[in-house]
Design a protein around this nucleic acid. Structure first.
Lengths: 209, 209
DNA sequence: ATTCAAATACCTAATTATAGGTATATGATA
DNA sequence: TATCATATACCTATAATTAGGTATTTGAAT
């Protein structure tokens, strides 16, 4: 259930920042860190196997692109989430070609990072909402899709009721809908947010709504 | 499940303050307000029946003590929670004699008020921790007891894990305890806080811990 | 020495949540 | 007009929570 993460970046301060964000989050544990791609490979060889590798693109010794190619070949079940500065859009495309499953900018906030990790673990792709247009274009060409984690009106309404402690049956009566419908919305919320439990939803809602 | 409350006070500003606090709380709805005891009786006669009546002691036309006596006689299922200023300890004792089930001072904070309401609904008594000594003495004489909502170490530990989204089974494995033990702690937390659901606990914890 | 809080463990039953589906109707939009 | 997002509804099965008990052990306090 817990998402295990390895962080790779040649700036220790940045690693510490991400670790700090993730340490406060349910279901996400940082199990390793590295200052370049080669160190990530060594962690993997020592059976430190994460669910997601959060990696910078430009690093000394072995960069994120080479790392991602090796991982795509030898550890295909691992998801790579690329981190980049705004000015590295060309590198980002290379990362995606190499097999990265998502991309966030380095000024990512907590909720976005958490969403990204959950999304990747589910097997979907995740991209920052504010990603440069040429990357969007590339993805449309490549027949991929950009996730949006926007809830619909109904879903938002139901999320609020969940936070208030209502059960599916109570919501169904209140909204004059079938319990089945409520549960369907609930499942769609789970899918969109990448959060599978009621307690997680309350956490998310209180922190982000 | 939702706790319905009527607020009675001759100061509208104070009613508004309490309403504002309660409106932000799960499972508590303000269904009526009154500026004196007689207005409360009229609400009850119009089938506006709350679970708890939050009432000032000194009010014009009909004070909280007379109100409480009438309620104790004609609506014994309703709980009366007395509100008072610090300087009205004699009145408070009269309220309790009249049948009030709890007492909070007017500088009550949100968490205390919510605990008080939950506690009364359960059928227990609630008294502000900082209540004057002569009232404590009176209660010891009268063989009542003062609730404390302090969680033990283990309970606090488990509450935190619940907030993190762990299930009973996960916690049992993590702490090397029986699932039965976890569930017992969980039930004791429910009892102490007067909150019966997981989502409610997460709400409580994020707001008060 | 006895009482008491805290922590532990077990049992049963009912309710709720989670997860995997499928399916239909509608209104917007490409 | 054909597709897509949204909202609706149903079905089954398993997991988890909630609620009602009882009971034992241990360490601290009266």
């Amino acid at each position: 259930m817990t998402i295990k993460v390895i962080i790779a970046d040649d700036h220790q301060l940045f690693i510490d920042g991400i670790k700090s964000i993730l340490s406060k989050t349910i279901d996400i544990d940082t199990i390793g860190e590295a200052s370049n791609g080669l160190q990530v490979i060594k962690l993997l060889e020592n059976d430190i196997i994460p669910d997601v590798i959060l990696t910078d693109i430009r690093m000394p010794i072995m960069d994120g692109i080479s790392l991602t190619k090796i991982i795509s070949k030898n550890y295909p079940q691992l998801k790579v989430l690329a981190l980049s500065m705004f000015d590295q859009t060309i590198d980002v495309i290379e990362m995606l070609e190499a097999g990265a499953k998502g991309y966030v900018t380095k000024n990512v906030d907590k909720s976005e990072l958490v969403s990204a990790l959950h999304t990747l673990v589910k097997g979907d792709y995740f991209f920052s909402a504010n990603l440069p247009e040429n990357i969007q274009d590339w993805f449309q060409k490549e027949n991929k899709y950009v996730k949006d984690t926007q809830l619909t009106k109904r879903e938002t309404e139901i999320l609020h009721l969940i936070v208030k402690g209502r059960t599916s049956l109570q919501m169904a009566k209140h909204l004059k809908l079938s319990k089945y419908t409520i549960d369907t919305h609930r499942k769609n919320i789970h899918k969109k947010l990448g959060i599978k439990s009621n307690t997680g939803l309350v956490n998310y809602a209180l922190k982000h709504l």
